[in-house]
């Protein structure tokens, strides 16, 4: 059974890659494959669940590969995050056309938009990411690399997530040799987000302001 699910996922990726669109129906999709419509439904209740599963798998694979790196445990939080994104692009490289389908807008009734609800398709991927990111953030705050601020400190992982969209989208549109610009984009965006999370002048300003207010010094 597990094999069938895997086979359906692979066939679906091939279908998107070849056609640049989703199959019109499960029937159409199963027609040229050696599984039936019914067998499909035993595994997945819709294309959306299937897609969510494929993306979850991409996330899982990326995290596994990232953590398998020998030096991973020696990395700082910033380096762990960088490593994650470099690996992500490496993993996605096998499915570039498939990936770009989820990041290219399409013409629908004269309007350009995504032909599906990306939020729900990426939800499981996001969950995998958040689990990884929370660990990274926690460790980084233990070592003092970043600053846990009240309220937003708990939401760091969630705030980091949109970066993933940005990086994948950047890569999908990157035309540079061996996607060098994406490497630079990753390096810069991760550095930026970690700089924001570490102590900034605004923290000192806030701290100072609070002190002044508390002491009624004006």
């Amino acid at each position: 059974m597990e094999n069938l699910a895997q086979k359906i996922k692979e066939s679906f990726k091939v279908y998107i890659t070849a056609h640049g669109r989703r199959p019109k129906s499960v029937y159409e999709f199963a027609e040229n494959e050696d599984f039936s419509e019914q067998e499909f439904h035993e595994q997945f209740n819709s294309f959306q669940t299937l897609e969510a599963e494929i993306w979850r798998e991409i996330g899982e694979k990326t995290i596994e590969k990232t953590q398998a790196e020998e030096v991973f445990t020696d990395y700082s939080g910033r380096e762990k995050m960088l490593s994650f994104y470099f690996t992500l692009i490496e993993v996605l490289k096998e499915h570039r056309s498939f990936t770009s389908f989820y990041f290219r807008l399409q013409n629908q009734n004269g309007k350009k938009k995504l032909p599906f609800d990306r939020f729900s398709i990426f939800k499981k991927f996001r969950d995998e990411y958040l689990e990884f990111a929370r660990d990274v953030v926690m460790e980084a705050s233990d070592t003092g690399e970043i600053l846990m601020r009240p309220f937003i400190g708990e939401k760091y992982a969630e705030l980091l997530w949109p970066q993933t969209y940005f990086i994948i989208k950047f890569w999908v549109e990157d035309t540079s040799d061996s996607f060098e610009n994406t490497d630079a984009a990753i390096e810069k965006s991760v550095n930026f987000s970690f700089d924001l999370m570490s102590k900034t002048p605004i923290d000192s300003a806030f701290d100072f302001g609070k002190f002044v207010v508390q002491n009624r010094w004006w």
Binding site: E70, Y75, R78, E79, L82, S83, E187
Partner: peptide
């Protein structure tokens, strides 16, 4: 950053520097 060095290595030579 070191992850980028690792990535360049993997891309160019197929293995990580370590």
């Amino acid at each position: 950053s070191f992850p980028l060095v690792v990535r360049t290595f993997k891309q160019q030579l197929g293995v990580s520097p370590t």
